[in-house]
Simulated assay, not measured.
Amino acid sequence: MRTHIDHDNGPGSAGAPCLARNPARTTCRVAGRGAVTNPAVRFDTRITAPFDDGWDTLGQEVGAPDLETLPRLETSVIPDTTRSAISWNNSPDIGFDRAVNPYRGCEHGCIYCFARPTHAYLGYSPGLDFETKLVFKPEVAELLEKELRKPGYVPRTLALGSNTDPYQPIERTLTLTRSVLEVLDRFNHPVGVVTKSAGVLRDLDILTSMAQRNLVRVHLSITTLDPRLARVMEPRAATPARRLQAIARLAEARVPVGVLVAPMIPALNDAEMERIMQAAAAAGARHAGYILLRLPLELRQMFEDWLHTHFPDRGRHVLSLIRQSRGGELNDPRFHHRMSGQGAYADILRQRFAKAASRFGYDETDRHLDCTRFALPEAAPLEACQMSLF
């Protein structure tokens, strides 16, 4: 089953012939979308290359076409038949070992998203496919409850939104993230939420209740305070102003809230680090973090193509600073290096963050959520009846 949901979350959803997987990296601008390419899936054994037979059929794909002439490109929503809800990791440089992601792919369309390459595991391109072909887990809440009830399960903080945003536009329709929070609330299970959507305020009732038991912390990701830059980098995410408003509402409701100044992109948004942290602190954020831009796998070339399309005046400089921070490459996947980089530029960024965190009163104490409250609630009547058969 495939359904189509068109979210009017920006200037419109337009498609282009470049949506076909194209190893030649033909670029095109698509209204309301982030990527300017749709690279081939790295696991495919066959790829398709564009060919102009003399009729100029590729003309509208080259350069910057008139957006008004491009056909609409709807968002496809595809059910996921995965029989598990929790994904586990043993990475030594992140603060959680488990996560739930109700959605794969993300309609926000952030060009810098490190999760884009994961779409290739589903047979889709990390480019425009990532933001237009969304996979959802319809039974995520039921699956999560089963896993929490397994004998020997030991609770630790679970990350919600570690890969793709749990409050992306389709959550308004499918409400899967809310169903996950309802399960965690009943089990008294701690959760950390990361989003760049003001849609998190819809679940303020659950978050407030969990906060009273020290079971939740929310972080809003803010990359820029410039709405024009935000529109280009993350076309369907909430505006920077709405994210600050969300921080204020969460803080007012006494939900522990922080800001992620992430990612910091050299010579593009890095000059805003202190201003973002100041604005977020004024809104009520008490915790902060940052990440230097990561460009794994296909994202390296995708970001370079996007950069030269939208910022041709500074593309070389941006890429040069990234390489200076990544040992001469565009990406460094090593643990304890991938998030912050190394070298002079990375050191200065690290010092700037530490100074700003101190100046604006951010709490650097690692306050753990409460895992001792975890308890199995009574099973639903039907489930109890079924279990009695065994």
Rank of each mutant, 00 (worst) to 15 (best):
M277G: 06
T57S: 08
W306R: 00
D226W: 05
A120P: 01
H336P: 03
L73V: 10
A267H: 05
E272T: 01
R29M: 15
V216Y: 12
A375Y: 09
V36M: 04
S84F: 08
A267Y: 02
P190I: 10
V62F: 13
I222F: 06
Y167W: 04
F303L: 08
D313A: 15
I78R: 05
N89E: 15
R178A: 00
V218L: 03
E383H: 03
S388W: 12
C106S: 13
H317F: 08
P102T: 09
G328Q: 14
E234D: 15
P169K: 12
S320L: 14
I5W: 00
V180N: 00
G361Y: 00
F130Q: 03
F335A: 10
T309S: 09
P151T: 05
F51S: 07
R254D: 12
S13T: 11
P92H: 00
A40F: 10
L297F: 12
A271D: 06
D6W: 10
M339K: 12
I47N: 11
G284T: 00
P296H: 04
P138E: 15
H189C: 11
E383F: 04
L225E: 06
L174E: 11
L307S: 14
Q212R: 13
M210C: 11
T118S: 08
Q342K: 14
H4N: 10
P151M: 03
L229Q: 13
H337Y: 09
L58K: 04
A271N: 09
L181H: 02
C28M: 07
F335S: 13
Q342L: 06
Q386Y: 05
V194K: 05
R242P: 02
D52A: 10
R149Y: 07
P235G: 04
D313C: 12
L148Q: 05
D93H: 14
R367V: 02
L250I: 01
F136E: 03
G315C: 06
T173F: 11
L220D: 00
P79T: 14
P227E: 09
A253L: 01
T164A: 07
L181Y: 01
P79E: 05
L299E: 03
L293I: 13
R33M: 15
E74G: 05
H189T: 06
Q386N: 10
R236L: 07
A375S: 11
A211F: 03
H310K: 03
F51P: 03
T37P: 09
S179E: 06
T239Q: 12
T365I: 09
Q60V: 13
V232R: 05
E147P: 06
R286E: 15
R373V: 03
P126C: 13
R116I: 14
G59W: 01
A282S: 02
M1F: 14
D80I: 12
P155H: 09
E234N: 06
Y290H: 10
T3G: 08
E274Y: 00
E142Y: 01
V259H: 01
P190L: 04
E272A: 14
T157C: 08
D370C: 12
T45K: 12
V135H: 01
C110Y: 00
F390D: 12
A40I: 07
G284W: 00
A357P: 02
R178L: 05
E252G: 07
D347V: 01
L389G: 08
Q351N: 15
L67Q: 06
I348V: 10
L376M: 06
I322Q: 01
D97N: 03
M273Y: 03
S340R: 10
Y345V: 05
D313E: 15
H287G: 09
P240I: 00
